[in-house]
Simulated assay, not measured.
Amino acid sequence: MIQVLKPGFLTSIQDKGRFGYRHSGVPISGAMDEVSSDMANALLGNSKDAAVMEITLSGPELLFESDTAIAISGAMMSPTINDNELFNDEVYRIKAGSILKFGKLVRGIRCYLAVSGGFNTKKVLGSRSWYFSVTGVEVLSTGKRLPIAENRSLNKNPDLTAAMVHNYNSSVIEVEQGPEFDLLSEAQKAQLFNGIFNIAKENNRMAYQLKQQIYKHTYSILTSSTLPGTVQLTPSGKLIILMKDAQTTGGYPRVLQLTEASIALLSQKSTSDEVDFTLK
């Protein structure tokens, strides 16, 4: 078990997400940055489906009540175990009674803590991902105890051949054409791919908005299905990028679609960071 001494900011348990329930309006949820969560799990030899802890902007303080091993990937948040410095993308054996803390945010905004065997929190609709309307819990709270696999042997030779890492300095967000891309004028397309955009203060697990707008439009569509990574265009010209906790349908034209790798990269960016779209 792991006991939460301090919850940090917007800390949650996430896995690959909740599939097969979108027809009922249930979001996919899951780790915002699958590149980093996959890396943390791979380092420990876990399944890619193993649940991890998603830590946003500031980290929790955790007491390990049993022996385990951990790996941290994604944002650099100056982690320590018993006040000894830890590094991202390394495996550490942890003894019962140890305390994990996080400090200064150095790079990115979301990091992922994996434990050997994964977090064994309750599954709801086939997933351990927290989403309040489905699971009744959204973020960590002080005193909460999280079950983990115990006495699990560690894979000493993890397969990292498929593991990816971010170029955190890149602002390039790779996209595909969305279903309503052809509604755009040539001038609007030029704005999308030649302009520079910055992330607005409205950014979270549901959606990222961009500060700059493109030309207004009067296009209308029937309410249609959306996915994480769908880029919607409002009549005023505002661009909204749906993320992992987004709604399952929408009535704005779906002009672009982010790749999974681009969703992951975008999830490590915050207010005022630059975004440049490029067609895949």
Results as ranks from 00 to 15, higher is better:
K269G: 02
A31D: 03
A42H: 07
F19T: 14
A42P: 01
R110C: 12
A114W: 05
F102V: 04
R205W: 02
A51L: 08
L43G: 08
M206G: 04
K238V: 02
N155K: 10
V275E: 06
L233M: 08
V4G: 14
G17Q: 08
V124I: 15
E176L: 13
T80S: 03
L43W: 02
G108D: 04
E202S: 13
T249E: 00
A114N: 04
N167P: 01
G126E: 00
L10Q: 15
L10T: 06
E54D: 11
T121W: 12
F64Q: 15
E186H: 05
Q213C: 09
S153K: 15
F87N: 14
A31E: 14
R205N: 05
G17Y: 12
L100K: 09
S225P: 03
I241R: 04
R128C: 13
L222N: 10
F277L: 06
T230N: 03
G143D: 02
F102N: 07
R110H: 12
I199A: 10
G237R: 15
M32E: 11
H217S: 11
L256I: 13
Y215G: 12
C111G: 02
S262R: 07
M53Q: 04
I28P: 05
N157L: 03
S270N: 13
L113T: 09
M53N: 05
T80W: 00
Q191C: 05
D182M: 04
L233W: 09
G45N: 12
N204H: 09
G136T: 12
K16H: 01
R110I: 09
F197E: 14
R254A: 10
L222D: 00
Q177N: 08
G59H: 07
S141C: 03
L10P: 08
P158Y: 07
P60G: 12
Y21K: 02
L256K: 07
S47K: 12
I173L: 08
V52R: 04
M32K: 01
S270I: 10
H23D: 14
F87V: 09
L222P: 00
D33K: 10
Q209W: 00
V165L: 03
E54Y: 07
I241E: 06
I263R: 06
G74N: 07
N155H: 04
Q212I: 03
S220V: 05
P79G: 01
A200V: 08
P7L: 12
I81F: 00
H217G: 06
S270G: 02
I99N: 03
T80V: 00
G195F: 07
D83Y: 08
S66T: 15
R107A: 00
E202T: 07
A69R: 12
L62S: 11
V275N: 10
T249Y: 01
K6R: 14
I109Y: 01
K238S: 13
Y215H: 12
T234Q: 03
P235L: 07
L210N: 11
N84Y: 01
M206I: 14
Y131S: 06
G103C: 05
K216N: 06
R128D: 00
N204I: 07
E174R: 08
V115M: 08
S220Q: 14
I196C: 10
V275C: 11
S133L: 05
A71F: 05
R93T: 12
Y252E: 05
S66V: 15
E138S: 15
D182I: 02
H23V: 06
R205D: 03
Q3E: 15
N169Q: 15
T142C: 02
